[in-house]
Design a protein around this nucleic acid. Structure first.
Lengths: 342, 342
DNA sequence: GACACCATTGTAAGCGCTTACAAGAGGGTG
DNA sequence: CACCCTCTTGTAAGCGCTTACAATGGTGTC
C-alpha cells in the first residue's frame, strides 16, 4: 500500500518499456504519442502509484500549478466566504491554493509585497481580496511575472471584480434619506494609504454623494472609523454615543459593523429603530433575524468570479485583453432596523 | 528594480568569489563557514536580490517548507478563526500554508485522502481541523511521510488539541437541568462515518450522560441533526417545531446553530427563553448581544496550539514523544436565553 | 527504387539547488 | 620536523523532471 520508495518517471518508463521522455509526454497529454504508448504508460503509472514530483516538474518546467489568495483577514464573514469560493474554483482547476492572511499587520504586508520574486517562486498568480496597496506596489506587481486578479479593488491594472460601492452606499444612504432622516452618521473602515484602491472609501463617497444630492453636508463628527467586525462596530457606536453626538440614522459599512453598533446601542439602553435607524451592507445570514435593513451583495460569487479571472489569465498569459473591471449587482433589503423619522 | 533574469546561486558564488557549495552553506546558516565568507555571501546575495529557487531546493533537499490546513469548511466562525490563527503560526515559522477546504464534498475528501503521496509531494505536514476520517485513512496518514497534527479530533495516532467536548456538553446540558428542565433536545452535527473521531459525537455523549445522571433518558425524536451553521440551526429547529415536538429546552451544538434556532423560533412566533430555553457552545461575538447562554471555548488558541504541535513535529521528526492529546478549558456563560422552568 | 516527409520515440543537456566526499591550510604534539 | 587534527572550502554527483534535437521507421511521390 504505502510505497516506501516513491516511484519516479524512470520506473514508469522501465515498466512501460519506453523512454522517460515519451512517458513524460504521455503523462501530460502532449500530441505525437501513439495510442499504444499512451495506454502502456497509463497502465504502468497506475500500477506503480506514480505521482509526478511537483518540485522536479516545477524546476524543469517553470509553472508551479498553484496560486495565492491574499486577504486582509480570513475571519470575517465576507472574507471567509470569498476565500472559500475562490479556493473551490482553484481546486477545481487543479491549482493549489496558498493562503496568505495579512492580519492587518504592516510587517506581514511588507514581507509579502517587499519580496515579490520570492512569491513568484512559489505561485504562478495571486488573487488579491481587498488588499490596500501603494502605487509602487501596484506597479511592481503588474510588472512581475505573476498573474494578478483582484476582488473589491479599484483602478488597478489587472482584472477585478466587485460591486459598485458608490452605488451600494447611495442605496443604503438614500434609503435613510427617503425615510426622512437628514442627520446621518457613517461607520466605515478607513484606508490608511494616500491613494484609494479599495472599496471602503467608495462607500464613504457614495454616502457623501447621497447627502449632497439632498443638499446636505457630511458632519465630520459623524464619520467614524470602524474596522469591519462586530467589535469594530460596537466601539464605533460607543464612540458616537459617548464622545460625539447621536444622529437619527447610521449607515454601517458592513453588516457585522451594524451588529456591533446595535449591540452598543443596547448597552446604552437604546435600540434600533427606536432611537436610531441603522442600515448595513452585506446581507449576512444573521441580518434577517436581527431585522437589519441592508444592501445585499453577492459574496461567494465575487470570490469565485475573481478566481476565474485569475485562472483565465493563467491559461492565456499572452494576447491578454485589456484588464477589465466587473461589477456585480446589489439590492436594498429594507427591514425593521430602519424606519421613518418622526 | 525588476530583475529580468533571476539571479541564481551561481551568480552569488561568482560575485562572492566562492564556490556554490560554500554559498549554499552560508545562506542556510550551516556551521563551518568563516565569518568573512559569510559576510561576502550575504553582501553578494543582497546586491543581486537573490532569492533561492523553492523548486530547486525542494528537489535537492527534500523539504517543501510548507504545510496544509485541511478543514471541512473555512466559512463558519470556528473554522475561520482556527484557520487564521494556525496560518499565523505557520507564517511566523517560515512555513507556507496551503488551504484545503473539503466543503463537505465527499469527492474532494476522497481526492485528497486518496492521494496522500500527491499531498506529501507538496507539503511536509498537515493540520487537520475536525476532519472526519475512516480508520483506513487514519492509518494511511500515520504511515505516510507527512507530519500530522489535528484540532478537535479524537483518539488519533498523532498530536491533537481540543476541548473536552463531553465535559462542555455536560456543562451546557447540566445548566439546563439545573434550571429545572428535564425535557431536552439537542441540535447537533452528526457524523456519517461508523467510527467516531470527531468532537460532534462527544457533545451528544455529554448530553446523554448529563441526562442519565439525572435518571433521564434521551428521546430520539429530540436528537436533531444540524449542520453547524445558522441555516442548519434554523432548519433543525423548524423540523423540531413542525414535525416532531417542542421540548422546554435545547442544547445547540454551536452558537451559530443556536442563532439559527432562535431565528426559527421567531419565525414561528416563539422566542427564547419564553417558550424554550437555549444554550449554545462557542461564545461567538454575537452571543452576548443576543443573550445566548453558552459554553465558551478558545478558538484561536486551538488553531494556534494545533499549528505549534505540527511545527514541533516538523522540527524534530525523530525521537518523537508519544502523540499527546491536549485539552483546553471551557466555561459556562449563563445569559438570558435560558431560564428556570416554571 | 530513391527521395522527401511525417509521426513517433529516444538521447542528452540542463533547471538550481543539496550533500557526500575530497582537498587544502594551519596548528598542536611527541 | 614528521604526523595527525580540525576547520574551511571546493568538486562533483545527483534530485526527477522538461525539452531541444536527433534518430528511426513507415508512407507517399515521381
Amino acid at each position: 500500500m504505502t510505497e516506501v520508495q516513491r516511484a519516479t518517471i524512470q520506473d514508469v518508463a522501465l515498466l512501460a518499456g519506453l523512454s522517460i521522455c515519451t512517458v513524460s509526454r504521455a503523462l501530460r497529454g502532449l500530441p505525437n504519442v501513439s495510442e499504444s504508448a499512451q495506454g502502456r504508460v497509463a497502465g504502468a503509472a497506475a500500477k506503480l502509484g506514480y505521482v509526478a514530483s511537483a518540485a522536479a516538474s516545477r524546476l524543469a518546467g517553470g509553472s508551479t500549478r498553484s496560486v495565492a489568495i491574499i486577504t486582509p483577514t480570513a475571519t470575517t464573514w465576507f472574507f471567509a466566504h470569498a476565500v472559500e469560493a475562490a479556493e473551490q474554483v482553484f481546486a477545481d482547476s487543479g491549482l493549489d491554493t496558498m493562503l496568505i492572511s495579512l492580519r492587518n499587520d504592516p510587517s506581514v504586508h511588507s514581507r509579502i509585497f517587499g519580496d515579490l520574486p520570492g512569491l513568484a517562486q512559489k505561485v504562478d498568480g495571486v488573487l488579491l481580496i481587498n488588499v490596500e496597496l501603494t502605487d509602487g506596489q501596484i506597479q511592481a506587481l503588474a510588472a512581475s511575472s505573476l498573474a494578478v486578479a483582484s476582488v473589491g479593488m479599484y483602478d488597478v491594472p489587472w482584472d477585478n471584480v466587485g460591486i459598485d460601492n458608490v452605488l451600494a452606499a447611495r442605496m443604503a444612504t438614500g434609503h435613510l434619506l427617503d425615510l426622512g432622516h437628514w442627520d446621518l452618521a457613517i461607520l466605515c473602515d478607513r484606508e490608511k494609504g494616500s491613494r484609494s484602491v479599495l472599496t471602503a472609501s467608495d462607500r464613504l463617497r457614495g454616502f457623501t454623494e447621497a447627502l449632497t444630492d439632498h443638499d446636505l453636508t457630511v458632519d465630520a463628527d459623524l464619520v467614524v472609523n470602524a474596522p469591519s467586525t462586530i467589535d469594530g462596530g460596537r466601539q464605533a457606536m460607543t464612540e458616537l454615543i459617548e464622545n460625539r453626538r447621536m444622529p437619527t440614522a447610521v449607515f454601517a459599512g458592513c453588516d457585522e459593523t451594524a451588529f456591533g453598533a446595535m449591540a452598543a446601542l443596547r448597552e446604552h439602553g437604546l435600540s434600533a429603530p427606536k432611537n436610531m435607524s441603522i442600515v448595513g451592507l452585506d446581507e449576512h445570514p444573521m441580518s434577517d433575524f436581527l431585522g437589519l435593513s441592508t444592501v445585499q451583495q453577492p459574496v461567494a460569487d465575487q470570490g469565485a468570479f475573481g478566481a476565474n479571472l485569475l485562472v483565465d489569465r493563467l491559461h492565456k498569459p499572452d494576447s491578454a485583453p485589456e484588464p477589465a473591471n466587473h461589477l456585480l449587482p446589489t439590492s436594498l433589503l429594507a427591514r425593521s432596523s430602519s424606519r421613518r423619522r418622526r
